[in-house]
Simulated scan of single mutants.
Amino acid sequence: MKLAIFAMVLTWISSAVAAPAGGEIGKRNPSGEFKLVAYGVASSYIDVFFSDGLAYAGDSSLWKQEGNVVTDVTFTMKNTELVTTATTPGVTLDASTLFYIRPTSNEVLPVGFTENGTKTPSDAVTDSFIFYGTYLMWEQTGGALSDSFRLKPTNISGVYQLYYDYSNTYPSGYLLPVVKSKDV
């Protein structure tokens, strides 16, 4: 766990050093299409992708045999929601497919997507997402920010399932990525 926290701190420091002259990273929302990527668990960033209504990170082509519907995705920001579009040829998602987290106290729960045929959990939240610089955050009622994403290795090397740890319980077996936007 100490190594994972150290990797996360290094990622944050390197991003701060790369901040534009003039100082701090400001609140902003990306315009146009972008990808979500996870840093801190591989030598480079890894893409967030869609599989059967859940969010994963890594090389989606390695996961094709594990999921029924697997696609790379891009996002657009609409108000405070992340609208999701499939980019893999032959795969289509509803135009209203949204990225969600499940900010439930003392539980580490899967991150996913709303879409046809997939039952969205009752505790799923699809709005109040913001970015600080390129860092994805969720803004709680009252203005507190949270970015408690976790990755759990799957049975396929280099592919991880994305989770949200609202209470920062830091359970064993999970990695601590930094989730950011990346221009397409």
Rank of each mutant, 00 (worst) to 15 (best):
L162Q: 13
G133I: 03
T118F: 04
P103S: 01
T104K: 02
S146G: 07
S157T: 15
S105N: 11
S157C: 12
T114H: 03
T126N: 06
F129T: 03
S148V: 09
S146F: 08
T141E: 12
M137G: 05
T141S: 14
F131C: 07
G112A: 04
L145H: 12
A144L: 12
S146V: 11
D147C: 10
S122W: 06
D127W: 05
Y160Q: 14
P121F: 06
Q161T: 15
T126E: 06
V125E: 10
L136A: 02
L109Q: 03
Q161S: 15
M137I: 06
A124N: 02
F149T: 07
E107Q: 15
Y132P: 01
N116W: 04
Y132M: 08
Y132F: 09
K119D: 13
F131Q: 05
K152Q: 15
I130P: 00
M137D: 00
T141P: 07
D127H: 10
F131D: 04
T141N: 12
N116L: 05
P121A: 08
I130T: 08
S128K: 11
Y160K: 13
G117I: 01
I156P: 07
P121C: 08
T141W: 09
K119T: 15
D147G: 13
T118R: 06
L145V: 11
A124T: 04
L109M: 08
P110S: 06
Q140K: 15
T118C: 06
R150K: 15
A144M: 10
T104F: 00
I101A: 00
P110E: 03
G142E: 04
I156Q: 13
E107Y: 02
K152N: 10
G158C: 14
P153H: 11
T120V: 15
K119H: 08
L151K: 09
G158Y: 13
T118L: 00
D147P: 05
E139V: 02
P110M: 02
G158F: 14
G112D: 01
T118V: 13
P121W: 04
R102E: 08
P121G: 07
Y132W: 05
L136P: 06
Q140M: 09
F129Q: 02
N116E: 11
P110V: 00
G117Y: 05
S122L: 12
S157D: 15
T114G: 03
L151C: 11
L109R: 09
Q161Y: 12
S128E: 09
F149H: 03
V108Y: 05
G142D: 05
F113M: 01
K152L: 13
V159K: 14
A124H: 01
G133C: 00
G142Q: 07
N106H: 08
M137A: 09
L151P: 08
K119L: 10
S105C: 05
P103Q: 02
F131E: 04
T120L: 01
T120D: 02
T141M: 09
G112Q: 02
T126G: 05
L136V: 05
P153K: 14
G143Y: 11
S122D: 14
T104V: 15
I156E: 12
W138E: 00
S148M: 10
D127G: 08
I130W: 00
L145C: 10
S148Q: 11
N116R: 14
G158M: 14
A144I: 08
V111P: 02
F129L: 04
S105V: 06
